[in-house]
Design a binder for these strands. Structure first.
Lengths: 233, 233
DNA sequence: CGGCATTTGTACGGTTTGGTACAGTTTTTA
DNA sequence: TAAAAACTGTACCAAACCGTACAAATGCCG
């Protein structure tokens, strides 16, 4: 496909796609924008095309930790079809770009039909569950170095480019560690020739090297996305 | 209800319940029993009545970490209706007892009807997602003491008794820490008069005290279960 | 150009946890 | 009843990470 698009929507059969297309609006989302706040009711569900969205839990004392990341392979707002309407976390644009969005009423009606659309959304949700649970495991058992590798790889998978715009401060908020911890970890990765960074720009130089340095968590998540959505997207 | 039962099933309208009841078998599950292995295809979905089941991720090197816990408020085997058939983790009986189970063909047919059964399963799944993501946050940001409190409270919520049969070694496997770490943490809780333990038996003495000593993670999960399933169960 | 905000680098002490080792106690088994 | 196994307690050092402080480098803007 020449036009950038959302891969879940792209996997729909023609019939459903034609039915939904009139209800899809393209919106531009900028870095740092909050798509929904913890506990907030949404009007739309988002299907990213070129942006990346982070799901963050915000602690009462202000610190935060990322629990999942969504690009054009997925959808932001699963609570809208899972039945809960809201979730206790925040969705923030991690990399600016575009997204399609759909009114919740249209979403629910199509979901209720129980066809391919429902099937794809539920399979994606299961993949996201794997990502979240693997984040839990990784937070428990692995070093900041390994987690940074995992995080860079997950982001890189959701980008066309080798360059991501992201300060160490922001990465620290995602990983739930100190900014200084990211500085030294990133320094080690740069020294090893895996990445290059400079004031808010990180370039992936040696992707295979990053994969080798990451823990098994990244591959587990990647394999699950492939298994659950691979033949669809 | 005098008879112990599964609360998800108990929330079904009479019509659906009558349809499903002939297909529910009561099974006895003993501590340590593995209900399903990572990647294994299941024949049945389980609705615990008196047992508790842990969802564990097993690392390649043998260490493990718990990503979720299921009692009679939920169901084991969400992958069967989410569409993935399997998940990359293991389900182990953490507290022996009984469970109802249903053949996957019956489950899928009823799920496909799209009624209250589907709605309840999806809402439960969202609650479980919150539990998993909060585990990720807790692993990242909180101390072993706090996590032990959270874990004890989650288990206590799923038991009728104040006493749980569980060695420190097993708890360590759940929390993904050393056994010695659990020993000292449990020692502190006992010294504070919150629990009593003795060779594999832990008694909750001061539940409110445990809640006070736990991090906010426990309440977030608890509130979500209440919000999503409270009026149903 | 000069001042200011942003971003990154470095350092140091303190806390938590891991790795390892071993001892003491209770329960089970032969 | 003796031996073995299971469970818990304690200790010590190392590694990872946090809190804090401050310096250096870069980019922006008046």
């Amino acid at each position: 496909m020449s036009k950038p698009r959302n891969r879940l929507l792209g996997a729909l059969p023609e019939e459903i796609h034609e039915r939904l297309e009139p209800h899809l609006d393209d919106v531009s989302l900028s870095l740092g924008q909050v798509i929904y706040e913890s506990g907030e009711r949404l009007e739309h569900i988002y299907f990213p095309t070129t942006c990346i969205v982070s799901l963050l839990y915000m602690m009462e004392n202000g610190t935060s930790a990322e629990i999942g990341v969504v690009g054009n392979e997925g959808v932001v707002g699963i609570a809208l079809f899972m039945g809960g309407e809201t979730t206790p976390n925040r969705a923030v644009v991690q990399s600016g770009g575009h997204s399609l969005r759909m009114r919740i009423s249209v979403l629910k009606e199509e979901f209720r039909r129980g066809g391919r659309f429902q099937q794809l959304l539920l399979r994606y949700t299961q993949a996201l569950i794997t990502q979240m649970s693997q984040t839990a495991v990784c937070n428990r058992l692995h070093t900041v170095d390994q987690q940074l590798c995992r995080w860079l790889l997950l982001s890189h998978d959701r980008l066309d480019s080798n360059e991501l715009t992201m300060t160490q401060e922001l990465i620290a908020n995602m990983l739930g560690v100190r900014r200084e911890g990211v500085t030294v970890a990133a320094g080690r990765l740069q020294e090893a020739g895996l990445i290059q960074y400079h004031r808010g720009r990180i370039t992936i130089v040696d992707r295979a090297g990053l994969e080798g340095r990451a823990c098994e968590c990244y591959q587990v998540v990647r394999n699950e996305f492939e298994r659950l959505l691979g033949n669809a997207v």
